[in-house]
Design a binder for these strands. Structure first.
Length: 367
DNA sequence: AATGCCGGGCT
DNA sequence: AGCCCGGCATT
């Protein structure tokens, strides 16, 4: 799958091209997305932009003023330094406004391990390291090009390009703020206990709800609590910040068949909460909600909304070319997510989600 | 064969 | 509503 995930890596070779002092005025190097050799070569300052050969048209905005300021200069005149500072500020500014937090997959950028799970809004890691721009690139194989002169931004997206990022940043900020504040609420039905320590909450869930502390529940309790902040919880129905609703949106059946499965699994098994919390919250909510919706017709459950919100654009976009499915009686194919049955095994059926136990569509690891 | 889950039945 | 399972589709 071409869901390339370029991490904004600046390899030393890229950042420090072995050039002479004439670089000062002549060349500005643009590092982005592991692009092999994106180079701004202007005989007059700031003139033309050389995009990498073979870059698909439209994938890159035409004039991308992204430069890694100071990346190529060793010796500079004071004016040059000042200029670079200005440019650095501009770069930072534009990066922080980069609309490309979620862009269509770039063409062959890095052969690097592409985990499309990172496309999910909460899943991308937010590096707070000093390397500005790391996060934004990481977030979505993004061309970091934030040019104000870009004429054709994400026209496909119906919203102003900045908006997505702002919402996302807002979300992240809230998340991290929440974690800083450290309030955790147990989501176990009819429990709702609130603790201010994550460890304590884990222990609570283990002891009270998971019945002891075997190793497996180590991960599982993540499903059963959520970070909360003093503010009220964000209203779930807000439109997906990063992901467009795929062609399936018109259908009430969650045909997304996208990768939140991997996502869910990843969040459940790879790493701690900070990543898994939001999706887990949704999952656990849907799971419990299932009991309410169980014997109704499956119209649009919260889980399905979750699914639609989180279905990875890469997949849904590639699939979108498939023949239109107007009627929703299409039976969902098997997702690639591990379901409770696989995860826990038949012998631990009591740990399955309710839906799985009832041989219904799994709510803990939705496709 | 194993898995996922729809449809439907039972309590 | 909660629970279970036959049976089918998919892998």
């Amino acid at each position: 799958m071409a869901a390339v995930q370029p991490r904004g890596r600046l390899s030393p070779a890229d950042t420090r091209p072995a050039r002479g002092p004439e670089d000062d005025e002549g060349l500005i190097y643009m590092q982005c997305c592991g692009q092999e050799d994106v180079e701004l070569r202007d005989s007059q300052r700031g003139a033309s932009v050389y995009l990498p050969a073979g870059s698909s048209e439209g994938a890159w905005p035409s004039a991308a003023p992204l430069t890694c300021a100071g990346s190529s200069n060793s010796f500079r005149s004071p004016e040059s330094v000042e200029m670079d500072e200005i440019m650095a500020a501009m770069v930072l500014t534009s990066l922080s406004c980069s609309p490309r937090v979620h862009s269509p997959p770039q063409k062959d950028l890095l052969p690097a391990s592409s985990s499309s799970g990172d496309m999910e809004c909460g899943g991308g890691e937010l590096s707070d390291s000093g390397s500005s721009g790391y996060w934004s690139w990481d977030h979505g194989s993004a061309s970091p090009a934030p040019s104000p002169s870009v004429t054709e931004m994400d026209g496909s997206l119906g919203q102003p390009p900045d908006e997505g990022l702002h919402m996302e940043l807002d979300y992240e900020a809230r998340r991290y703020k929440g974690s800083g504040k450290g309030a955790y609420r147990c989501l176990w039905p009819s429990c709702g206990k609130v603790l201010n320590s994550r460890v304590g909450m884990k222990r609570h869930i283990q002891l009270h709800h998971l019945g002891g502390g075997s190793e497996h529940s180590q991960r599982e309790e993540d499903f059963y609590y959520a970070e909360i902040s003093s503010e009220e919880e964000p209203a779930p129905p807000s439109p997906a910040p990063t992901l467009s609703i795929g062609p399936w949106a018109s259908c009430s059946s969650p045909l997304g068949a996208s990768t939140p499965g991997t996502l869910a699994s990843a969040s459940a098994f790879s790493t701690p909460l900070s990543q898994s919390a939001p999706s887990s919250v949704w999952q656990i909510h849907t799971e419990h909600l299932y009991q309410v919706l169980a014997s109704r017709s499956r119209s649009v459950s919260v889980g399905e909304q979750w699914l639609q919100r989180n279905s990875a654009p890469t997949r849904s976009q590639t699939i979108s070319a498939s023949p239109s499915r107007n009627h929703c009686t299409f039976r969902k194919g098997r997702g690639e997510a591990k379901k409770c049955r696989k995860v826990y095994g038949v012998e631990r059926r009591d740990q399955w989600c309710t839906a799985c136990r009832w041989k219904k569509a799994c709510q803990r690891f939705p496709d």
